[in-house]
Simulated scan of single mutants.
Amino acid sequence: MNENAIQSNQSLSPPASHFILSTCTLWKREMVRFLRAKNRVVGALAFPVLIWIMLGFGINNMFKTTGAVVSYGNDSAPQAIGYLEYFFPGMLVMILLFTAIFSVISVIEDRREGFLQGVLVSPASRLAIALGKILGGASLAVGQALILTVLIYPLVGSIPSPLAIIGVALSTIIIAISLTALGLCLAWPMDSTAAFHAIMNIFLMPMWFLCGAIFPVASAPLPMRIIMYANPLTYGYTTISSLLIGTDAQQIPLPLAATIMTVFCIVLVLLAARIASKPRKDGI
């Protein structure tokens, strides 16, 4: 009798292969869905690049002349850099943010269209569903950010060392996972894309504006500087900026920024998994 109960419990527990298959299937769906939606590709890439070009060329000479940012390269003496180079890491973070937003909106759309209900009643666990969404959105964001870095950054800045390039790639992955997990935490309880866009405008976009992407933390007024230091995205941006262009404009040590960025990522992934594991009031 006890053996039958044990076998029954074992049959109810999905094996690891089912978990991996469910996660990979949802990850693949995000890839296919993104490539088929040409407007998403254009929207996620074109807007950040346009912002970078317009702000970069508009402020570049003034920014370089005032010496607002100092770069420490191979030379011992600091060198002033232009705004095109300074704003480039901010553009990468914006691409990661936009791609994360577009990817998690599909959660709301899938629930409205009935696809999510079908997935939730399948043997796939809610944790696998959450991870599939997070990894799908993060993969798209990282791919776009790295492609633009390879194509554009050599035109405006010096090529960093191989070790720095590896660090930038790892930082991009961690930030992409963090932002996608954050977006999933916000989108999962919602039924309206309009409500999510409102949250994006009052919460996600200010996170980007106040991460040091547009102006250095060190040059901000004290009240705003406190908010920027409390913003977790500041440390992700600082990590990419320090590795890519070598600036210390944020006055945050690189090891500290990398540590906070990693902890932020772990906390958000666990929070997203917890939110997705609990059924909503409507059961889905």
Rank of each mutant, 00 (worst) to 15 (best):
Gln117Thr: 03
Phe215Asp: 11
Leu116Gln: 03
Met228Pro: 04
Arg225Glu: 15
Leu163Pro: 09
Leu151Ile: 14
Ile159Met: 09
Ala220Val: 10
Gly114Tyr: 01
Ala198Lys: 05
Ile152Asn: 02
Ala218His: 14
Asp110Gln: 03
Pro206Met: 10
Trp188Gln: 04
Pro162Cys: 06
Ile227Phe: 14
Ser139Trp: 00
Ala194Val: 14
Gly157His: 12
Pro162Val: 08
Thr172Ser: 15
Ala138Ile: 01
Asn201Phe: 13
Gly137Ala: 05
Pro221Ser: 03
Gly132Glu: 00
Leu146Ser: 14
Ala213Tyr: 15
Val156Arg: 11
Ala220Asp: 11
Leu179Met: 15
Leu140Gly: 11
Leu155Ser: 13
Arg126Phe: 01
Val121Trp: 14
Thr149Ala: 07
Leu151Glu: 07
Lys133Ile: 10
Ala141Met: 09
Trp188Asn: 04
Phe215Val: 15
Leu186Thr: 10
Ala198Gly: 10
Asn231Ala: 13
Ala187Glu: 00
Tyr153His: 15
Pro154Thr: 11
Ile174Glu: 06
Ala220Ile: 08
Ile165Ser: 07
Pro162Leu: 05
Val217Phe: 00
Leu127Ile: 12
Gly143Phe: 06
Phe209Leu: 15
Ser125His: 12
Leu182Asp: 10
Ser125Gly: 14
Pro189His: 08
Asp110Phe: 02
Arg112Phe: 00
Pro206Cys: 02
Ser139Gln: 00
Ser122Asn: 00
Gly157Glu: 09
Trp208Leu: 12
Arg111Gly: 06
Arg225Ser: 15
Met205Pro: 01
Gln117Cys: 01
Pro189Leu: 07
Gly183Leu: 00
Leu184Gly: 02
Pro221Phe: 06
Leu120Cys: 01
Ile226Ser: 08
Val217Ser: 03
Pro223Arg: 06
Leu233Gly: 04
Gly212Glu: 13
Gln117Tyr: 01
Leu155Glu: 13
Glu113Arg: 11
Ile166His: 07
Thr172Asp: 14
Gln144Tyr: 04
Thr193His: 01
Ala194Glu: 15
Ile152Gln: 01
Pro160His: 07
Asp110Val: 04
Val119Pro: 05
Ile214Phe: 15
Val142Thr: 12
